[in-house]
């Protein structure tokens, strides 16, 4: 059974069809990339999956259960972590607190926990959450930055912190929205290795990215979106030579 299944998903904003009857499955354990020109509807797809938008038509199911129509926070709690294209860290909080917030669904003590903050059972959970958060930070090589303000990190590290924060949710599926944007080649290489390691821990990765070298080097499969329509899907080497894809990126006449 596939982990995530988009069945005939369409969303319209007034007259604009941003995503048009897309069928797509994400298999357990794979790295799937979604590419396409600017405005193709890639980020809209992520917003549909995470419940920020509800599809006008079609359904999305995760682990065999329908999630389209659910609230964003219940979808996250079901095991879908995500990062954002324009970094959305909790800027004025420490790196560790950012990841601890990501681990929110791993904890149980709520307001009553605040009243009993010094009780051993609450402290035990806090300790476990902190250990887990540090563990997630180690995965993106940021543990040494744990007590710095998130806003003070350099850009590339902020992107990695977003990944750590999403991992803290212990997701089955992680959605990475342009994780390599704005990184230099060395940083991209480091990130590529990190994403591979994350997949090796059993997390399925679904990412949107513009950098072709990055996508080709990382993905098991690639899906291509153009004007909200899925125009191709397949292995990196097939996508590279697919005439429709080349046309979408470079225009007619580029195929030779």
């Amino acid at each position: 059974m596939s982990l995530l299944k988009l069945d005939n998903v369409t969303i319209r904003f007034g007259g604009l069809v941003a995503v048009d009857s897309v069928n797509l499955t994400v298999e357990k354990g794979e790295i799937l990339s979604l590419i396409g020109p600017n405005g193709a509807g890639k980020s809209t797809m992520f917003n549909l999956i995470t419940g920020i938008y509800t599809p006008t038509e079609g359904t999305i199911s995760f682990n065999g259960k329908q999630i389209s129509g659910n609230k964003t926070h219940t979808i996250a709690a079901a095991g879908i972590g995500r990062t954002f294209q324009n970094i959305r860290l909790f800027a004025e909080q420490s790196v560790l607190d950012n990841v601890l917030i990501g681990a929110h669904t791993r904890g149980t003590w709520d307001l009553t926990g605040s009243l009993m903050k010094l009780a051993p059972w609450v402290r035990k959970e806090e300790g476990e959450l902190t250990e887990w958060a540090i563990e997630c930070l180690k995965q993106v090589d940021l543990a040494h930055r744990a007590y710095e303000m998130a806003v003070n990190l350099p850009y590339g590290e902020q992107r990695r912190l977003e990944i750590a924060r999403a991992l803290a949710l212990k997701p089955d599926l992680i959605l990475l929205d342009e994780p390599a944007a704005g990184m230099n080649p060395q940083e991209k290489q480091v990130l590529l290795e990190m994403v591979k390691k994350i997949r090796a821990t059993g997390v399925t990765v679904f990412l949107v990215e513009h950098d072709m070298k990055f996508v080709m080097g990382l993905s098991d499969r690639i899906a291509v979106l153009d004007y909200g329509v899925k125009i191709a899907e397949g292995k990196p080497e097939d996508i590279r030579t697919n005439p429709q894809v080349i046309e979408a990126y470079l225009g007619k006449g580029a195929v030779h």
Partner: peptide, 20 residues
């Protein structure tokens, strides 16, 4: 506490907080 962190997350970025 965990409760307070959730509140601060909402203050800083509601969309990101919900995605957590």
């Amino acid at each position: 506490s965990r409760f307070g962190r959730a509140l601060k997350a909402i203050r800083d970025d509601e969309i990101a907080a919900e995605a957590m």
